[in-house]
Amino acid sequence: MTPQIQSAADRLQDAIDTGRPCAPVRDLIGEHDIDAAYAVQEILAATRLDAGNKIVGRKIGLTSDSVRSQLGVSRPDFGSLFSDMSYATGEPVPLERLLQPRVEAEIAFVLKQDIDNPHASVTDVLRATDFVVAAIEIVDSRVDNWDIRIADTVADNASSGLYTLGCAPFSLNGLDLAQVGMVLEHEGEPVSVGSGAACMANPVVAVAWLAREVARRGTPLKAGEVVLSGALGPMVPVKAAGVYTARLDGLGEVQTVFTDDGGAR
């Protein structure tokens, strides 16, 4: 580990600890050094694990052309989901846990088998998936004003925050996730629309990409893990308390209820 990698981790950890966004870290590790960025991510993950958290899954970021365009990056990335990040549909989510939240609608995969194969295919993902549910990912950035490039977001756990899962599981049998339409509403008004095809052509393709990446890095997907497969449409900034509802064709709906009255857990 280089001093620059440790300095980048320290900068992001200070933002986490103080609740004050920091400057980008690409000046320390380089704008395009993906391996250095994942090394920073691993340091920050180790801190969370030492504090008693557990890794319960993974998230894929930057799978949508619209999101990559919003952030000025050109490739997907991944981060870890920790045991203190999950909320059920309709459960209050305290805004005080977040710095600069945005929301995006996704399809979450829950695995019943490990996928430990650096050459994993779509077939492997289909075979390993127990069920899918509608999800809202609450993305966040420790970098001030979301001034990020690929190295910044990778280092910052793929700009993860929290997530909300729907309660209705669906088998993949007979489902073509590319054809799933999505509408994300804020207080009943549509604020983002998209489809499964926006997520690397099909969310199953995105999960296969993730499976290969993490297996290659020695941390393969495990049975029981949740995988947030990526945005189906543009991200939406969250400015205040309120209700966001994602409706996914054939997969029901999921609701995130932001509150500003505390209740952090």
Rank of each mutant, 00 (worst) to 15 (best):
G218E: 08
Q6T: 13
C199T: 14
V56M: 11
A201Q: 14
G90L: 01
A9T: 08
G252S: 07
P24T: 06
S229T: 08
D144C: 13
G72W: 00
D249Q: 14
S7H: 12
G250W: 05
T129A: 06
A46M: 11
R127I: 08
D176K: 11
R247M: 05
A36D: 10
F82H: 14
Y244R: 01
D50H: 13
S74W: 01
A197Q: 13
C199A: 08
T164Y: 08
M85N: 12
G218I: 07
N157C: 04
V227I: 15
A178R: 11
A197N: 06
A155W: 04
M1H: 11
S192P: 05
G196Q: 03
G242F: 04
P94W: 04
E91K: 05
A39S: 14
G174A: 09
C199W: 00
Y163A: 09
D14Y: 12
T219F: 10
R142I: 00
P3W: 05
L44I: 13
A23L: 13
V257N: 13
V205W: 03
G263F: 02
S80K: 14
I16R: 14
V143P: 01
T2A: 13
R11Y: 06
V236P: 09
L126K: 15
A134M: 04
I150S: 05
L99S: 10
S74Q: 02
S74N: 11
N173S: 14
L228V: 02
F109D: 08
W209S: 05
R97P: 01
K222Q: 15
E213S: 12
S160Q: 11
A168G: 02
A197D: 07
G242R: 09
A178S: 15
L62I: 02
V143N: 04
A105Q: 07
I60L: 10
D176C: 10
I34M: 09
A231E: 03
Q6A: 13
T63V: 08
G30F: 00
P234L: 09
N173I: 11
L62E: 02
S74T: 07
D249F: 00
D249I: 00
F170K: 15
T2K: 14
V227A: 06
L165G: 01
D17V: 06
E31C: 11
V214R: 02
D261L: 00
D50E: 15
R149D: 12
C167H: 14
N157V: 02
D144N: 13
D114L: 02
V139E: 05
I60F: 03
G218T: 07
S69C: 09
R127F: 12
R58I: 01
E106S: 01
K59C: 07
K112E: 14
V238Y: 09
A45V: 10
T219A: 13
Y38W: 01
C167G: 14
D65Y: 07
I43T: 12
